[in-house]
Design a protein around this nucleic acid. Structure first.
Ligand SMILES: Nc1ccn([C@H]2C[C@H](O)[C@@H](COP(=O)(O)OP(=O)(O)OP(=O)(O)O)O2)c(=O)n1
Ligand SMILES: [Mg+2]
Length: 654
DNA sequence: CATGGGATGAAT
DNA sequence: ATTCATCC
């Protein structure tokens, strides 16, 4: 028994897409992957496919150099927001650094589809970046082993029996490319390699993306491994090969040692490889680099890493940034770019809300000045959701800028700005979080927040120039497109996957079978002693609670119209509220055109706001959704609901 | 003025 | 709360 316990370990797979952005463009444009292709951002390259790498093109090349190296290469520029656009588009010409803002949304959305496959293949997965994930396959692997041992005849399980492992088809082995070995750990890795093949095959079949994988006993080794045989291959690092591998490994290739810290270690000890660290005691390393780093170093240079796969699936923050060339020097310019960033974040937030039912609490505004080494940042609360419009973020940042309590605030010129949102909170039944939405109304609101329905100042109306510009124009519906493409069918899936979509916990194959020594054996190997993988509850935490009827509209819904009387216009999600706000906007424009006359029709207290025309969203006019329209618990049938369409059009610019 | 845009977690 | 460091 004791002996058996020592013979298994965690099994971790690290998956990394090959030339990720390039593959997204290959698929989108239907270009064969043997065509050299680079993803271009302004004059630089941010991704280079393997055919182009063969020609010597690298990421840091600019397009001119790259074209020289490979004249046949295709250069695909990332999607951008053109001058006044609120939706990103792929442009083939006229892409101006001065006026456009890049959008990486196509890659984020592709990433989500990939991660969805990972998730249903292995619930214990960690999104490590836009194109990487760690999968802890320990449970699934052990279950498969157990099942096979139980079903496949004899070979009773002596504690001493070492299983035989055939490496055929497992991928590439680090070190000796043996075809056979024995041992429980190797068997685990072999089964994980098989699952990894399945997952990669699923990704390719459903999305036509290739990826590489590393299979090892911990995250650090798995990641090291995945990059070893890059295009479309997987690599296994057996325990027996760990030491020889680590011995020659350059320190800087280990995660977290690729920067200053790595060079610090190299210079302090005069070493360049992990193996050269072996001769130092923990105490020595701790004395030189601190207790925590010291012991981490001691372990990591031997290929030991206890870091768990933390189940993080969605991003914790969102950011939009622009480097300004030439540097800007006026508030008008700052406002212009802030509005563009604000619009982008607004739309991403609406999408995110529909998917994840959450909303951020804080905005962070970063500014970098030309001579400063780094940027500085300030943060503030987001406006309450019901007040939130496309320009809210812009206005918050401008307020932050002009009222810089920080002495370094209002300096010019500015080289780069970035706006981030974070501190997401579930909007759901979150008893506590809902309260936050009512805590405060930003602009000089009078005390009786709840009592003054009509004279509500249109949020964001203050700083907007009078000119109303930009007819709605584009009405593309990115979210709808996304949903149409998203639901991956996933027919016959092998073993590791189930047909079960989204958040459901993954159920192992029925067979529990066998008993005897194996059960105890595997039970203990699944780290968390009491974490029985067979917890019954399907976990069905739905939120019908906040789904009110037709009219009543739960008064505690965070999706309330700021213009309508309190409690009279509540919605089930951000999109519905946004649409309702469009109605107000349309009415406002309508009234304005008619010389402002009386409120036209149905919804109470038409906005009245005059200059607010530029504030909210330049919606399509779509005749007002009458009161009855709002509310409907189901958003599914509402596929027609369009994407938020902020107006933008900050007058200037020629 | 010339890598840019974006995310995470630890340190301060 | 803000900056730093690391990574993609
Ligand atoms: N400095 C960087 C590094 C990466 N990326 C983007 C473009 C890449 O396509 C994607 C994934 O990064 P990887 O490091 O995984 O590189 P690739 O996936 O492009 O290539 P590889 O096949 O080596 O993984 O992230 C970026 O914008 N800027
Ligand atoms: Mg990659």
């Amino acid at each position: 028994m004791d002996e058996a316990l020592k013979r298994t370990d965690r099994v971790i797979v690290h998956v990394d897409l090959d030339a990720f952005y390039c593959q997204v463009e290959h698929v989108r444009l239907g270009i064969p992957t043997d065509v050299p292709l680079c993803v271009q951002q302004w004059q630089g390259l941010i991704a280079v496919n393997y055919a182009a790498r063969a020609a010597g093109i690298k990421r840091h090349c600019n397009v001119t150099e790259a074209r020289k190296l490979c004249p046949e290469a295709r250069f695909v520029h990332v999607a951008t927001f053109a001058d006044g656009d609120t939706t990103p588009q792929y442009h083939s010409e006229g892409i101006s650094y001065q006026t456009h803002k890049v959008s990486l949304d196509p890659y984020r959305k592709a990433s989500m589809k990939i991660m969805a496959i990972f998730e249903r293949s292995c619930p214990k997965y960690q999104r490590a970046s836009i194109d990487e994930a760690y999968l802890d396959l320990t449970d699934e692997v052990n279950m498969r082993i157990k099942t096979r041992l139980a079903s496949s005849s004899s070979t009773d399980m002596d504690d001493d029996a070492e299983p035989d492992v055939n490496w055929d088809g497992a991928g590439i082995l680090v070190g000796d490319q043996v075809s056979h070995s024995t041992g429980w750990r190797d068997l685990q890795l072999r089964v994980a390699a098989e699952i990894s093949q399945e997952i990669r095959a699923t990704v390719y079949k459903e999305l036509q993306y290739t990826c590489s994988a590393g299979i090892a006993h911990n995250k650090t080794l798995a990641k090291l491994c995945s990059g070893l045989n890059k295009p479309n291959k997987q690599t296994v690092l057996r325990q027996a090969a760990v030491s020889p591998f680590m011995e020659k490994l350059p320190l800087g290739e280990i995660r977290n040692l690729g920067g200053k810290r790595g060079t610090e270690v190299e210079e302090a000890l005069g070493v360049t490889t992990a193996g050269e660290l072996w001769k130092y005691s923990v105490e020595t390393l701790q004395a030189k680099f601190g207790a925590s780093t010291g012991s981490w170093l001691y372990d990591i240079c031997r290929g030991i890493c206890h870091e768990p796969v933390t189940e993080t699936a969605i991003a914790k923050s969102m950011m939009a940034a622009k480097t300004l060339r030439p540097h800007i020097k006026t508030v008008a310019e700052l406002s212009h770019w802030l509005e563009i960033l604000s619009n982008e974040l607004y739309n991403r937030l609406i999408d995110d809300n529909a998917l994840n039912n959450r909303w951020p609490r804080v905005i962070t505004f970063h500014v970098k000045h030309p001579l400063d080494a780094s940027s500085h940042s300030r943060r503030t609360d987001l406006p309450p959701f019901h007040d939130f419009v496309a320009t809210s973020i812009r206005d918050r940042c401008l307020a932050l800028w002009t009222s810089g309590g920080d002495g370094s605030a209002s300096r010019w010129p500015i080289e780069r700005i970035a706006v981030g949102v974070g501190g997401f909170e579930k909007l759901d039944a979150g008893v506590v979080s809902v309260k936050n939405f009512f805590k405060k109304v930003e602009p000089t609101d009078e005390p009786g927040v709840v009592k003054t329905p009509t004279p509500t100042p249109a949020p964001g109306a203050e700083s907007s120039p009078p000119s109303r510009r930009k007819p709605p124009a584009k009405a593309t519906n990115s979210l709808q497109n996304f949903f149409n493409a998203a639901p991956a069918p996933a027919p016959s899936n092998t073993g590791a996957t189930t047909t079960n979509p989204s958040p459901q916990k993954h159920r192992p194959p029925s067979s529990s079978s066998s008993g005897g020594p194996l059960d105890a054996f595997f039970q203990t190997t699944t780290t968390t002693t009491s974490a029985t993988p067979s917890s019954p509850t399907p976990q069905k935490s739905e939120q019908p609670a906040s789904a009110p009827g037709p009219n009543p509209a739960s008064s505690d819904s965070p999706f309330q119209c700021a213009t309508c009387p309190p409690g009279s216009a509540a919605f089930t999600d951000a999109r519905e509220l946004a649409e309702h706000n469009d109605w107000h906007m349309a009415m406002a424009l309508h009234n304005e055109e008619r010389g402002g006359g009386g409120a036209a029709a149905a919804p109470p207290s038409s906005s009245s706001s005059l200059s607010s025309s530029t504030a909210a969203r330049g919606g399509k006019t779509k005749t007002g959704p009458a009161r009855g329209k709002r509310k409907r618990a189901t958003t599914a049938g509402d596929a027609r609901s369009r994407k938020a369409q902020p107006p933008l059009a900050f007058g200037r610019r020629e």
